[in-house]
């Protein structure tokens, strides 16, 4: 194992993590960002951002690139596409193990692991990804011209994407687990009024079936448990986001949705461990709110490090 020592380790390099890095390294706090995916997180998944104040219109990829450049220019080290293979968050020295072969230690940690699209986790889903199963209607919609598709979900994205898919598909069926939708009334109305859209409520996809590509799905009625088969060319899974906190389950306090519980200073229940962005318990998940959380977490972490170092000197 190789060992590296920093003042602060930021786990996750999205808007929240990169903002925290900018603030910390600018304050000359020795900082590293350990990021499992592409630096920028969900920002890089966004075609166009039009609500980030001060920037009229920008691609998420560009905004993420600028944030990354800013953090690096102030001295942050960024490691992307790594795997976090272990964490010890309690005690004065916190450690993060990477790729089973490197150990990073620091006195403070900021967790900014964000969130990701929820998957169904049913047989065939992974096998037919890209061969009929999709998580992005904007990306893959045009592969389904005059084809039959299903949209799974009942929130705003599912209903809006179902309507947009009618531009390509011959029929769109919305499969939703409840008997009502969680979307805005106008989105529900628009979907209901579209002649190409039909609904299968209180049901879930139990299995994806096909050969070289997806051919049909097995749908289970939630109340009767009856299984029916439906021929289909594509299935778009738009069932919301989950926080990336699975690895933290036994390490810090999470709520029942798996979100990290913090106070207004972004402190978790463990001293020296802060959290920011989409992975924390909060109502609105936007780049602006992630940036705000990252700032607060960084300033508090810097104060904590300062306190820590002055305490040590006093001893």
């Amino acid at each position: 194992m190789r060992n590296y020592n920093f003042d602060v380790i930021i786990i996750g390099g999205g808007a929240a993590g990169l903002t925290a890095a900018i603030y910390l390294s600018r304050a000359r706090v020795n900082t590293i960002v350990l990021n499992e995916g592409t630096a920028g997180g969900q920002m890089v998944l966004t075609h166009e951002i039009a609500n980030y104040p001060g920037v009229e219109n920008i691609s998420g990829y560009k905004l993420a690139g600028t944030m990354k450049k800013q953090a690096v220019s102030f001295g942050t080290e960024i490691r992307s596409n790594i795997r976090v293979t272990g964490m010890k968050l309690d005690g004065e020295i916190k450690t993060v193990e990477v790729n089973d072969k490197e150990i990073y230690s620091a006195n403070a940690v900021i967790i900014a692991t964000g969130g990701k699209s929820r998957t169904l986790n049913v047989p065939g889903e992974e096998e037919f990804k890209g061969l009929g199963v999709s998580y992005c209607a904007t990306c893959d919609g045009d592969f389904f011209r005059d084809k039959k598709v299903i949209v799974v979900g009942g929130g705003n994205s599912a209903l809006e994407e179902a309507v947009s898919l009618t531009k390509y598909a011959s029929e769109v069926t919305i499969v939703h687990q409840f008997d009502h939708f969680q979307a805005f009334e106008h989105a529900v109305k628009e979907a209901e009024e579209n002649p190409k859209i039909s609904f299968i409520m209180e049901s879930r996809i139990a299995e994806f079936v096909g050969d070289e590509k997806l051919r049909k799905v097995r749908i289970e009625n939630q109340s009767t448990k009856e299984i029916t088969e439906k021929d289909v060319d594509g299935v778009f899974i738009l069932i919301g986001y989950v926080p990336n906190t699975a690895k933290l389950r036994d390490l810090i306090d999470l709520n029942s949705a798996g979100e990290i519980i913090t106070d207004a200073n972004m402190r978790t229940n463990i001293e020296g461990v802060f959290a920011a962005g989409d992975s924390i318990q909060k109502r609105f998940r936007q780049i602006t709110t992630a940036v705000s959380d990252g700032t607060i977490a960084a300033l508090n972490a810097a104060e904590y490090i300062h306190y820590f170092k002055t305490q040590l000197q006093a001893v």
Partner: peptide, 10 residues
């Protein structure tokens, strides 16, 4: 330059 492609380029 979409959400499924950009991570692969990265």
């Amino acid at each position: 330059m979409g959400p499924m492609c950009v991570p692969v380029y990265g």
